[in-house]
Design a protein around this nucleic acid. Sequence first.
DNA 1: GTCTATACGCCGATAGAC
DNA 2: GTCTATCGGCGTATAGAC
Lengths: 230, 230
Amino acid sequence: MLALYTLFDLNDRLFYMMTDNAEDIAPTNTQTKILDAAECLFVEYGYAATSLRAIASAAGVNLAATHYYFGSKKGLFASVFRRCVQPINEERLLLLNKITESERPLTARSVLESFFTPLVEAVYKNHRVPALIGRIYAEPASLTKPILEQEFGKIAARYQLALSEVLPDVPTEELSWRFHFMVGSMIHLLQFNAPLGTESTYSTFISGIDRMLDYAEAGLTQPNKRQRHD
Amino acid sequence: MLALYTLFDLNDRLFYMMTDNAEDIAPTNTQTKILDAAECLFVEYGYAATSLRAIASAAGVNLAATHYYFGSKKGLFASVFRRCVQPINEERLLLLNKITESERPLTARSVLESFFTPLVEAVYKNHRVPALIGRIYAEPASLTKPILEQEFGKIAARYQLALSEVLPDVPTEELSWRFHFMVGSMIHLLQFNAPLGTESTYSTFISGIDRMLDYAEAGLTQPNKRQRHD
DNA sequence: GTCTATACGCCGATAGAC
DNA sequence: GTCTATCGGCGTATAGAC
């Protein structure tokens, strides 16, 4: 049964997670304690403004433990991100393969839903997921490029292939731009959760995802105005 | 006559700008030297990872001069950003007011073009503009929120008003979400310039803006699926 | 008004004791 | 596997020279 647990208290702010795994509730191994603390602090303050000292202190471990387990601050950042994103992307591929085999005809809408459903489920368990994914696109490219390519390279290619099968009239190059714009809308939503002036909660986030699906579908499936240049 | 000038050489990389102002070519005042150097370094490495020492050294001024002129690192960041964005936003309002008065009927396309034309012109003069605007959305909110509200609050409201006049069937709340998604696509384009795998040049940037206009127009003008909740 | 010199506490990283 | 000590570099601030 999923329930909400307090991870720790830092500067009078509480940090939470939702889990059904007893190991998560009171992590016994040092790696997990460091990852949990780092996730909260990277999300809150960004990579460069978060010190390993602050992470070690929040996690209740020695400073040198961060280097022992993750080699460097960069390595820790990549590990935090991978732990968050890998399960989402695995679920995406499972869903996409499933609907590719079962749905006739396959629609752009279904493809998009297989992309966003695993994300929404992950956000339900851990409300830091949007901000964490937002962060990776926010940090300088020198830090994030290798991480982004490793975690998203395969899945971006797979989704563009699926979309090109669903939208055969849109040239590949045009489709990759449209996919790029969709990712941009998504990242912006993840980073800011809601338009300026709206307070952001889980339900406004869901409502935003829902509206973004409409927006992305309209943009992706628009008639092609350009000539192919073969 | 616009021409390209080398600003300075840092770690074997050259930083440029395009200008027709003699004062820009060899800036004599310390403020400008600091602003130029800071712009390059903030774009390249991000806010937190750029040291005032590196800025002062690149600008050829004393470390303490940065505090004398800009009060703090935050103040310097805000000044760099304001110098870049203020002229663009002034031009946007001029254009928007012009077409609002002269065009019958006013179209969503025209409104969007008045938003992007001043940006494209600024990028032609200074190729760091996209990355610089991208950066402000990438830094932690505690740094950027006051800056974003001051520089973009008024213009975002003005454009949403213009769009709501052009698209009277779309409820205000729905329109503000769609505008939010458009800004997201734009920021993503500014930050990454082109889809992964495409090298980014000025002409690919222009082509991206052009395609994004189509994408945004399709999303903004899509028929409304939702009920008004009055 | 403009700029220099200097100081303080915190940073990532590492070497080596246990 | 954990911890202490330590290094050079950092952001920031300020006192005071010109």
